[in-house]
């Protein structure tokens, strides 16, 4: 059920550890992705979530993004979200997260 609704692929690119997410990031799938991403952040300096192929992002998903951002800030690491499109982009914009989380348009824009 969990695996059916979200899938993540870990890519190392340009110094970043990138979680490319596919599917829905909601209250059901968020805890799992959150744990994976948090443990990934423990072992890398730059973590990004590529949400290009994410079809849904709920407030629970937003919460994950915020928690990761807080953790990165505390540990002085980099955390970013990239590739948001459509609904997900809307949600991100509406939640006005850009003050808290670094948002990039495309994965290639990661610096």
């Amino acid at each position: 059920m969990v695996d059916e609704t979200v899938a993540s692929e870990v890519i190392q690119e340009n110094g970043w550890t990138i979680f490319a997410l596919t599917g829905r990031l909601d209250r059901v799938t968020a805890p799992q992705i959150g744990e994976q991403a948090e443990s990934a952040l423990d072992s890398c300096a730059k973590l990004a979530l590529d949400v290009k192929h994410l079809s849904y992002l709920s407030s629970a998903g937003i919460r994950i993004l915020l928690r990761l951002a807080q953790k990165a800030k505390k540990e002085q690491k980099a955390f970013a979200v990239c590739g948001a499109e459509g609904f997900v982009k809307e949600v991100i914009e509406e939640s006005n997260m850009n003050a808290i989380v670094t948002i990039y348009g495309e994965r290639s824009e990661l610096g």
Binding site: L66, Q70, E93, E94, S95, N96, M97, N98, A99, I100
Partner: peptide, 29 residues
């Protein structure tokens, strides 16, 4: 603060969202 922008509905039936207001959610930072 990070919420969905409310809608304004005119008496004639035109509905639109408020255009501005993009602050982050509370308790995050």
């Amino acid at each position: 603060a990070g919420h969905n922008l409310p809608a304004i509905v005119s008496g004639k039936g035109e509905a639109r969202c408020l255009p501005k207001g993009h602050d982050p959610m509370l308790a995050a930072m």
